[in-house]
Simulated scan of single mutants.
Amino acid sequence: MAGITLGGNPINTIGNLPKVGEKALDFKLKTVELKEKSLADYAGKNIILNIFPSVDTGVCAQSVREFNKKASELENTVVLCISRDLPFAQARFCGAEGIENVEMLSDFEDGSFGKDYQVTISDSAFKNLHSRAIVIIDTEGKIAYTEQVSEIGSEPNYTTALEAL
């Protein structure tokens, strides 16, 4: 399990992020239109998974904004912003913020993405939400980069993540 912090207090995830070089696990997540998406829908593209607890928190919202800015400059790359928020909340946020360059996906149904990618928080007030993490999947479907952000209230290292592409 990954030891992280929430407001400086220790909390844990159910495991560790996949290892670089491993084949990325498939997933089934819902779009803001309640359609199902899987890893196969993005075959042949670089995929940035921007994983976080809730778009209704400041740092999570900022990560979506930041990747939205950067995504328009990336070739053959899609940014998937993944949380357990309901698709309706994700759609509301994107509409209010003018977010158009990233795709919001929800793990609200059963949390299987969080379990498979080991980002489900196992304790604290955030239990069963996702930790803040970045996972990059290359065009061949292999893990190219991961970052488990050690403090939930901190932003990921955007520069290092984008350099991994």
Rank of each mutant, 00 (worst) to 15 (best):
G3F: 14
C94K: 13
K45Y: 14
E66A: 13
D110P: 05
Y158I: 05
S154N: 15
I99C: 03
D110Y: 03
I121M: 09
L6T: 00
C81M: 09
L162D: 10
D56G: 13
G3Y: 13
D123N: 05
I143N: 02
T160E: 15
C60D: 06
I143E: 03
A164N: 10
E97Q: 11
Y145K: 03
L80E: 08
N68E: 06
S124P: 03
D116C: 07
G114E: 01
E103N: 10
E163T: 13
L129H: 04
L6N: 03
R84N: 13
Y42K: 08
N16E: 12
S124G: 03
T139W: 11
D107F: 06
A61H: 11
Q118H: 12
S154I: 07
E75L: 12
I134N: 02
V59W: 06
D56C: 12
N50M: 07
N50L: 08
S72P: 13
N46I: 12
I134R: 00
T31N: 06
K37A: 10
A164S: 14
F113K: 01
L39W: 10
D56I: 15
S106I: 02
A71V: 08
A91V: 08
S150F: 11
I137H: 00
S112D: 15
K45L: 13
E147D: 02
D26R: 07
E36V: 13
A161Q: 07
L34M: 15
T13R: 02
P18E: 01
S106G: 04
G21H: 02
I47Y: 04
I47V: 11
L25F: 10
K142H: 09
K115Y: 10
Q118F: 13
N76K: 15
E140W: 08
